[in-house]
């Protein structure tokens, strides 16, 4: 476990490369106006971050990021793009000020909050001193899985995770039933409306699609 956590110079360089890619993609998403390009780049962002999670040994987070971020949310965003325009409207410079202030304030608060966190690998921190230490000790003999977080999620709490999966599946099924299939679906409704209305106007014409 330790030799994986420490890594070498090569691992550090790959870390830096992945994080640099994330930075470039995020900058491009903020600058681009074509919504389709933004959706594609968000897929790239999810793939890179999923690979990076695997690199830093957070396997379960990487799984979730790949399934939800790269797979599902790209499809959902493309579906949302059906209802709006294809390019973003250029905003006025003054309108950017509010979100900028909110982002800066949130960032300052998060950094301020992270000052109190225990250092990485601190042996006296509550996470390492209490029941976590027991799991670290017995995990290998119980499960034989090197990643303790994965073994807790998938083995110790496996029944719980199975229940969560069932709940999420039922919710998705209910949403799909409400939206309808076949004749009652949104696509059929859009197809039956005249051609002029199916092509989305720049803004505000999405009322007929709902």
């Amino acid at each position: 476990m330790t030799e994986v956590m420490i890594g070498g110079t090569g691992t550090a360089l790959i870390n830096i490369l992945f994080l640099g890619m994330l930075f470039v993609v995020a900058l491009a998403i903020a600058r681009l106006r074509s919504l389709f390009a933004i959706v594609m780049l968000s897929g790239v962002y999810s793939l890179v971050s999923a690979a990076w999670y695997i690199l830093v040994d957070a396997v379960d987070v990487g799984f979730t990021e790949a399934a939800v971020g790269a797979g599902m949310s790209t499809a959902v965003l493309l579906g949302a793009m059906l209802l709006t325009a294809r390019t973003a409207k250029p905003e006025k410079p003054l309108q950017r000020l509010g979100p900028l202030v909110v982002c800066l304030a949130t960032g300052v608060m998060l950094i301020y909050g992270s000052v109190d966190l225990p250092a990485l690998g601190d042996a006296t921190s509550p996470a390492n001193a209490g029941i976590g230490l027991t799991y670290l000790k017995i995990n290998w003999y119980d499960m034989g899985v090197p990643n303790v977080v994965t073994s807790v999620l998938a083995s110790y709490r496996g029944f719980d995770t199975l229940g969560e999966t069932a709940v999420v599946f039922t919710a998705g099924l209910a949403v799909a039933l409400l939206l309808g299939f076949g004749e009652r679906s949104l696509a059929e409704t859009l197809k039956k409306t005249p051609k002029a209305e199916t092509r989305p106007a720049p803004r505000g014409k999405d009322g007929n699609a709902a």
């Binding site: 594609m40 897929g43 790949a66 797979g71 499809a75 493309l78 679906s185 696509a187």
Partner: peptide, 24 residues
């Protein structure tokens, strides 16, 4: 697993191009 997700999402994107909808 990533291969499967990549394949499915590419199919979804191309289907979106073809039909402008996922419900076809």
């Amino acid at each position: 697993l990533y291969t499967l997700i990549n394949f499915v999402s590419t199919i979804a994107i191309l289907k979106f191009f073809r039909y402008r909808s996922f419900q076809v």
